[in-house]
Each structure stands twice: as C-alpha cells, then as structure tokens.
Design a binder for these strands. Sequence first.
DNA 1: ATCATATCGTTTGTTCCCTAACGAAATCAA
DNA 2: TTGATTTCGTTAGGGAACAAACGATATGAT
Lengths: 169, 169
Amino acid sequence: MAIKSRDTSKTIQESIATTHVAALDVDMDAMAAISNVFRVSVLFHNQAEKRFLLQHKLSFSGFTVLWVLWVFGKMESYQLAEECGITKGTLTGIVSTLEKHGFAERRAHPSDGRRRLVRLTRKGDGLMKKLFPTINALEQEFVAGLKPAELVELSRMLRIILHSQDPVP
Amino acid sequence: MAIKSRDTSKTIQESIATTHVAALDVDMDAMAAISNVFRVSVLFHNQAEKRFLLQHKLSFSGFTVLWVLWVFGKMESYQLAEECGITKGTLTGIVSTLEKHGFAERRAHPSDGRRRLVRLTRKGDGLMKKLFPTINALEQEFVAGLKPAELVELSRMLRIILHSQDPVP
DNA sequence: ATCATATCGTTTGTTCCCTAACGAAATCAA
DNA sequence: TTGATTTCGTTAGGGAACAAACGATATGAT
C-alpha cells in the first residue's frame, strides 16, 4: 500500500500552469497559494454535499444557513444573509427551500411589519445536532496530514489574508 | 491610520462559533482551518468578479474555462470539464455563454462525430493576455501580508490536504 | 453484417447566486 | 398630517451548478 500522506509535490495542473506562464512576469507563489485554496474549498464542498448533505435534501448553502441559525439563534433575514455571505434575494430562495423541507420557518417581527424572523424548527435543530459532528469529522479528515502546529499555522496565515481584506469603514 | 496587516486575531464569526460549540466534542482547529479556507475562497471569488471580470461579461467560471483553454490549447469537452472541476452539462452552458460573447468556439472533431473541440477565439486570447496579469495582481494583493517563506509554506500545507484526498485509482 | 454496449455532448429539471426592480412598512420633514 | 425617503423581504431574469436522461456516434462481439 502506497503511502500518500505528506505528499507535498505540485499537482499536475499546477505544473502545467507554471510552465505555461513562466515567460510572463507572474508571481508564481501567489498564484499557487490562491489556486490551492480554491481547490481545497471546492473539494470539501463536493465531499460534504455528496457524502452527508444531499441525503438530507440539503445543499451546502442550506447547511450553512442552518448552521448560522443554530449558532446564533433566530435571526432577521438581512443579518442572516450578511452572516452567510449571500445576498438577501438569494437567501429568500434558500429559506423557502428549507421551509419546504421543514428545517426552518419564518415568523413575523413583533413590532416591525417589514421584517421577518427566521429560526430552526425542532426538526432542523435535530438535524444539526446529528450533522455537525459529521461535518467536523470530515474537516478532521481533511487536515489529518498536518501536524498540530502546522494546522494552527495554517489558520493563522489565512486569518492574515482575511483581515488584510477587511473593508475599511 | 490603523495598521491592519499581520492581524492574526480570530474573526468575529470564528469567536462566536467557537463559543457555541465549545461544549461539544469538536476539533476546533480543524473547523477553523477549513472555515477560513472557505472565507478566503469566497472573498477572492467575489473580488475578482466585481473588480475585473463582470465588466468583460465574464463570470469566474467562464474565466476559469478560458484560462484552461489558454494554458492547454484546444481541448475536447470532457477533458475541459474535468480540468475545470465541473460536469459536462455545466460546461455546455458555460461554453455557450462564452461563444455568445465571442471568446471561444466549438469545432467538429476530425474523426469522431461525437466529440467537439473547444478553443479560444482571437478575441478570447487577447482578453486573457490582458486579464491574467490583473488576476495575478489580485492574488499578490491577497497574500501581501505573508512573508515569502510563509507563502511557500501555505501552498505546501494545502498540497498535503489535496494529495490526501486524491482518489485511489 | 448485425446487434449490443459504451461514450460523448446536449437537454431537462431543480437549486443556487447575483443584480435590479418592486410593494409594503417605517421614518423623517415640513 | 401629509409627502418624500429609506429600509425591509420578495420577485424576475439570467448565468451557473448538479444529476439524470436522451440522441447520435463508435466500438465490440458474434
């Protein structure tokens, strides 16, 4: 059985791309880093959907919305959209889908007739209790090849990127 | 003027999430790492689309297809889809959009009547020559807060994750 | 030569995602 | 109090994403 963990070689795609743009004035290291962030992101997204989410009629986006509701409790739509990183128009569709499957519900705001409150149903809460550890296990599986110190270092570097892109108020 | 680079503190979202799941048996470091990979990915995607791509009637996916065509030359559809990490059905739609805007074109395969060859038009090639350095500049902007050695280390760790998820043939 | 199977690109149907426009409700001004 | 503006959530339209099914073509076996 071949040992495949701790393989740090370039992927095929990375190698070909590197060769092709070698003549241009390009920062290869920056390109490699961002490209690999994308690949990990897409890979995790697909794995999570196929292995755990779709069998519950849940898209990754739907799971994200449920997760935010689970962590923050009931929320108003515009906050929820902000937190999930999507627009309010998109959120309307996702919450409608979640409502159709009985995972979330909309309520009227007690004092403001324009606003709606979104919250988990009992069914949605139960689903999250079951699903969250599963997703976390997948996260562990993804980073299993990294040493503990490396893992912390990875998060730290990503945070540097995130903070550097913070909108200046 | 506040110095905001090299900020390695947890984001607000990370803090709240951490507190909420503290009681559960959860690997916080794995959760933080994957979550932050996602945030960087979404952030870059949105910035690239809004600042450089949409003005050319190009989606991020469309740009990806164009990029692969630019690097690999003309390709058959099924290879192109594979390389872009999307399904062939999705690729049909994207190539149709690219064709509509004159960036790419479909040709018949010389010997196999089922296959199609996709390639850049002159207009598409010119667009990539202009766009690629711009995107690379955004990549540099994103990782500007990292020291050169850290940047290399970041790519290395992401590759470990990618290779660990390689499908076993 | 014929029939069965496999492969390739497209189409179909659902969901997601955005921007832009809209109606309802709240707020503010005069 | 009336009228204008702002702030909500929803809707509309287009592109993107997937799986599944569908023709057309190629290839294989008999």
